[in-house]
């Protein structure tokens, strides 16, 4: 059962555009995790994990809870930066998404 229900089909397409479009797969250089990455600019980064990738990341697995769980894995961040430097991630947004 859905909760907040859109009244227009275009809204579903917007949801898809903003959450799924333009994701490039990036593999971590240190573990088997693969994530979806989008970069609207040099400084902007959007990283979508899934359960499988999350299970591979030893850094995130080590976190004990509380405030500790939230920051990003530095190895994955470095891998994304390297991929961006190598031109593997297209940089720039399309009409806001």
């Amino acid at each position: 059962m859905a909760s907040f229900v859109p009244t227009d089909a275009d809204t579903l397409e917007d949801q898809r555009l903003y959450t799924q479009a333009r994701l490039t797969e990036v593999a971590c250089l240190d573990c088997l995790a693969r994530v979806g990455v989008k970069k609207n600019s040099e400084h902007h980064t959007s990283v979508q994990w899934n359960a499988e990738a999350r299970a591979h990341c030893p850094d995130l697995a080590r976190r004990s809870g509380g405030r500790d769980v939230h920051p990003a894995c530095p190895r994955m961040l470095a891998s994304i930066e390297a991929a961006a430097r190598d031109g593997q991630i297209p940089i720039g947004a399309e009409d806001g998404y």
Binding site: H43, T45, Q48, N50, A72
Partner: peptide, 18 residues
């Protein structure tokens, strides 16, 4: 039972404030 994986999967975002 209706919680989809993408609702709880990890997601990270950095806004470009430049």
């Amino acid at each position: 039972d209706d919680i989809a994986p993408e609702m709880t999967d990890r997601f990270e975002f950095e806004v470009d404030t430049t």
